[in-house]
């Protein structure tokens, strides 16, 4: 099953636009979580004409399954281009599932400083949360059983697929 990504992105952009209006700083710092989150963040950054450079988080060093799975061999550097203290941060990911990635990303974010606020924006919320985490802005909610996964491929063109894990 394929989902129309463009529709989701334009809905996401509109909702994020209203979120920005509610902040006291119209130029927040947008931070994408590697890899899919960066693509979505780049889209928002351009569509909303944000001026501050995009931040990138690779949460490999903050995962809670390190002792079981070891270090992700594909780990790449995180980069937060400016001091995040007192910045409003828009944290962007492609798919929200258990919430563990977001937990890790927030822990990493706070090692860079103390932001004024953090808002979570996700392209797809597929349900299945294991932590008390919720998105402020969601492109689409698709409830999936545990054996199914949403996968974003890109960066051009961005494509969303629902895949069923082989058992």
């Amino acid at each position: 099953m394929n989902i129309n990504v463009d529709e989701l992105l334009s809905s996401l952009t509109q909702q994020t636009q209203s979120l920005l209006l509610s902040l006291d700083d119209p130029q927040p710092l947008i931070v994408g979580i590697r890899t899919g989150g960066i693509w979505v963040a780049e889209h928002l950054h351009q569509a909303l004409a944000l001026s501050k450079p995009i931040g990138v988080l690779d949460i490999s060093f903050y995962r809670d399954d390190f002792s079981r799975l070891g270090l992700n061999p594909e780990v790449k550097p995180s980069s937060i281009p400016l001091d995040i203290t007192n910045e409003h941060v828009i944290l962007v990911d492609d798919v929200l599932h258990t919430g563990r990635t977001i937990r890790a990303a927030m822990n990493e974010l706070f090692d860079y400083g103390r932001p004024a606020s953090v808002h979570l924006v996700v392209l797809v919320d597929r349900g299945g949360r294991e932590l008390p985490i919720d998105a402020k802005v969601t492109g689409k909610r698709i409830d999936l059983p545990p054996q199914q996964h949403v996968k974003l491929t890109g960066p051009t063109p961005l494509k969303l697929e629902i895949i069923t894990a082989k058992t």
């Binding site: 690779d58 490999s60 060093f61 903050y62 390190f66 270090l71 061999p73 780990v75 790449k76 550097p77 995180s78 980069s79 937060i80 203290t85 822990n107 990493e108 706070f110 090692d111 860079y112 400083g113």
Partner: peptide, 19 residues
């Protein structure tokens, strides 16, 4: 390659990761 990702830990407010 992995070391590359650790080099920028020095530049942060908290120079530590919880690994």
């Amino acid at each position: 390659d992995t070391a590359e990702s650790f080099t920028n830990v020095d530049g942060r407010t908290v120079k530590k990761v919880p690994l």
